[in-house]
Design a protein around this nucleic acid. Structure first.
Length: 283
DNA sequence: CGGAGTGTTAGTCG
DNA sequence: CCGACTAACACTCC
């Protein structure tokens, strides 16, 4: 269930492995998982693998782009012609044995014999073939990436000052700022010592500045550690787990001591999702 | 059987 | 029209 650091980890490895390859076939096993005319990808070369927010973009030689959103359970697994397997996403037991598996939704075959499998247990994720206008339309609904150097503190402050929603929910809203998911939002709020239930527009200027830096810090750490792997549910493109979970501040640490003040981390529910925070120091 | 899951969005209500 | 909240998407695991 990848967040930005996990998607970025996949992008980097995939980029090394598939740029330059030519697509020889694309098989859609679950109609819901692929949108657009799949025949347009035939004989196209992969020019680049990019990322914006949590979306991957496979840029093709004919100007089209395959957009990939892994959502909660999507995985990309590359099986090379020599049988070696490298994947990324949220592995379920079925594909560790053989591919395609029951959760394989789309298969992209390359002319050299390598195959890229898109597996997705819950079928929330998708691949979408998009022309430049459609790509632009897709990204129009996203706010700037939290780790985009072009995102300035003033804009972040302005956006947060316009809503009284709980700060945690505001940060999860990708239209406000993109790339922050549950794990890194919980940790960023702990690092900045801000209570997740406070209305966003009640934060003081200095608090927002701390939060801005904290959010960028946890995302950077996540990328540096190749993402977060809970219960083996994420592996990078070489099949290795990420390691952010080893230094998570509060996420999934209910009843364990806060690394900042020692009080026990508690779990509450916001917007139907779990929030972990420390009552001791997140006032 | 009920509940929860690292994401997003359509629909509803005020 | 906007903000805020909920259900829904589909499936597995505990």
């Amino acid at each position: 269930m990848p967040e930005l650091p996990e998607v970025e980890t996949i992008r980097r490895r995939l980029s090394e492995l598939i740029v330059g390859k030519k697509i020889s076939n694309l098989e859609v096993r679950r109609a819901r998982s692929f949108q657009g005319d799949s025949s347009l990808v035939l004989n196209q070369q992969i020019l680049a693998v990019k990322r914006r927010a949590k979306l991957l973009q496979l840029q093709l030689s004919n100007g089209q782009t395959i957009l990939v959103h892994l959502k909660m359970t999507g995985q990309l697994i590359l099986v090379q012609a020599d049988g070696n397997r490298v994947g990324g996403g949220h592995p379920t037991a079925d594909w560790t044995a053989s591919l395609p598996s029951t959760h394989t939704r789309v298969i992209i075959e390359f002319a050299d014999g390598d195959k890229l499998f898109f597996n997705d247990q819950r079928v929330f994720g998708w691949l979408k073939l998009a022309d430049p206008a459609a790509v632009a339309a897709e990204f129009a609904k996203y706010g700037p990436d939290i780790n985009d150097p072009g995102l300035k503190l003033d804009l972040f402050k302005l956006k947060l000052s316009k809503t009284r929603r709980p700060i945690k929910l505001a940060l999860l809203d990708s239209a406000l700022v993109a790339g922050l998911g549950n794990i890194y939002v919980c940790d960023a709020l702990n690092l900045a010592k801000i209570n997740p239930v406070r209305p966003a527009n009640s934060l003081k200027s200095a608090e927002i500045e701390l939060l801005f830096k904290a959010a960028q810090h946890v995302i950077s750490r996540g990328i540096a550690l190749n993402g977060t792997t809970f219960d083996g549910k994420f592996v990078d493109v070489s099949g290795f787990a990420g390691h952010y979970q080893d230094e998570a501040l509060v996420y999934a640490r209910e009843n364990q001591p806060c690394k900042n003040c020692g009080a026990l981390v508690i779990k509450i529910r916001q917007g139907g999702r779990g929030t972990y925070y420390c009552k001791g120091c997140q006032i």
